[in-house]
Design a protein around this nucleic acid. Structure first.
Lengths: 119, 119
DNA sequence: CGGCTAGTACGACTTGCATCGTACTACGGA
DNA sequence: TCCGTAGTACGATGCAAGTCGTACTAGCCG
C-alpha cells in the first residue's frame, strides 16, 4: 500500500486528469454506476467540501471492490485523492466538474436510488 | 421488421419509459458511449426538433450495430421512435430530458468528440 | 514485536456491452 | 414478381466492467 508515486509529492496526491483532460463520456460512464453515483451524492450532500477518507463513505462492498470503484472515479476526474498515512482522503472535484459540465453535479445531488440499488 | 406492438398504435410508436420512469443512471450509461453521444448531439444541433429517420444520422456502423444503439437510446428514454412504413423516425425527448435532468442535453451539445472517436 | 487497520494489486469469474454477420420481415417501385 | 431498401432479431465474438478473495504493503498502537 501507500507510496503513491512518491515522486508525485509529499502531499500524497494521486495521479488524476487535469481539468481540461476530463472527458464527458468518461465522467458519464463513471456516474452511470449506482454505487458510484451514491458515493458522489453522499459527498455532495454531507461532505461539506472537506476531505473524506474512504472509510467515511459507508460502501457496502469488500475492500477490493471499493478500491476498484475509487480508481474509476479518480481516473475519470470525478475525485481527487491523496494518501495521508493509512488513509486515502477524497474530495469531489466540484470546481473542475462545475466548470466543465455545469449542472451535472446538481443532477447527482437530486438523484434518488432505485429500491433495487444497494448501498 | 415493422409491426411494433401493433396493438401499441397506428402511430407506430415503440415502447419507451414514461418521463417518470426514466432513470438517471440509464441515461448516463446510454450517453457514455461516444457513438451515441454523437447521435444525440447531431440531432440537437441539426435536427430542428423534427422527426428524423435512422438513415438521417450518418452512423458509420453496420445496420445491426446501429439497431443495437437505437435500442439502447430508446430504452433509456433518450429517444422516441416510431415506425412509419419502412422508416424508423426518431426525436430526442428533449422536453422529458430537460424536465428530468436540466442542463444535461446542453452538455451533450457542447461535447466535442475526441480525435479517437469515430462517427 | 504482534495484532489490527486502511487500502492496493492481482487474478479469477461472471455478466454486460459494442461489434459484426446472417437471415429475416416489411415496404416500395419497376 | 423481382429487386433493392430500411431495419430487426439472433447468435457469435472479444473486450470491458463489477465482483470477490487472496496476498500484500504500510501505518498505528499496545
Amino acid at each position: 500500500m501507500p507510496t503513491p508515486a512518491a515522486a508525485e509529492s509529499e502531499t500524497g496526491l494521486l495521479p488524476e486528469p487535469t481539468r481540461e483532460e476530463i472527458r464527458l463520456e468518461k465522467v458519464l460512464s463513471a456516474l452511470s454506476d449506482p454505487l458510484r453515483l451514491g458515493i458522489v451524492r453522499a459527498y455532495l450532500r454531507d461532505g461539506d467540501g472537506e476531505e473524506r477518507a474512504c472509510g467515511w463513505f459507508k460502501i457496502d462492498r469488500p475492500k477490493s471492490t471499493r478500491t476498484h470503484h475509487w480508481k474509476v472515479l479518480r481516473e475519470a476526474g470525478v475525485v481527487r485523492q491523496r494518501q495521508v498515512g493509512l488513509e486515502r482522503r477524497n474530495v469531489i472535484r466540484e470546481d473542475d466538474l462545475n466548470a466543465r459540465f455545469p449542472g451535472l453535479l446538481d443532477l447527482v445531488v437530486a438523484w434518488e436510488p432505485d429500491e433495487t440499488d444497494v448501498t
